[in-house]
Computed example of a mutant assay.
Amino acid sequence: MRVNCVGAIIFDASDRLLLIKRGHPPGMGLWSIPGGRLEQGETDEAGVRREVLEETGLRVEVGRLAGTVDRPGPGGVTYVIRDYLATAEEGVPTAGDDAADVRWCGQDDLVRLPLSEGLLESLTEWHVLPRGR
């Protein structure tokens, strides 16, 4: 079974990437970009906006598709994840929903933090790494 998911790649004015620490499985304790499963009949854009608001408290404008990845999930599920560039319009990042923590991260953080499997490789491949520190 394939499950449609979306994620948001958001940078601040210092070109740092917004990451959340997952508070629940799958990926509990790992850092990733905000995102999750689409709801029935939901568009990618609406899903990105909803997930970012639920997990970080930020309202975003959704931009172009950065890339797509397939990730294995429990019980033979495959998560089809479409990650979009997004711009924060208002709010201060605050952990909510299934996010245990939220923070702006520079290049140095990406090599220090325990990241979700494949995140760094995907961001590198899509040329959307943070340049800030």
Rank of each mutant, 00 (worst) to 15 (best):
G96T: 08
G75S: 09
D101I: 11
G73A: 14
D83C: 13
R82L: 02
T87A: 13
A100K: 09
G96I: 04
T94S: 14
A100E: 14
A86S: 10
E89Q: 15
T68F: 07
A99Y: 00
P72V: 01
D97T: 04
T78R: 11
D70F: 10
A100Q: 13
D101F: 06
G75F: 13
G73R: 04
P93A: 07
E89F: 06
T68R: 15
E89L: 15
D98R: 12
R71T: 12
D83S: 12
G67S: 11
D70G: 06
G76Q: 04
A86R: 00
Y79T: 01
E89P: 02
A88V: 11
G75H: 14
T94H: 12
A95W: 03
D97Q: 13
P72L: 04
D98C: 07
G76L: 06
G75A: 09
G96W: 05
T94A: 15
D97P: 05
R82F: 06
D97E: 15
L85R: 12
D101C: 11
P72Q: 06
D98A: 08
P74S: 13
V92F: 13
T68G: 03
D97V: 07
T94W: 05
V77S: 10
P93K: 08
D98M: 11
V80S: 08
L85T: 08
P72N: 05
L85P: 04
P93F: 09
D97N: 14
R82E: 10
P93W: 02
G76M: 05
A66N: 01
E89I: 13
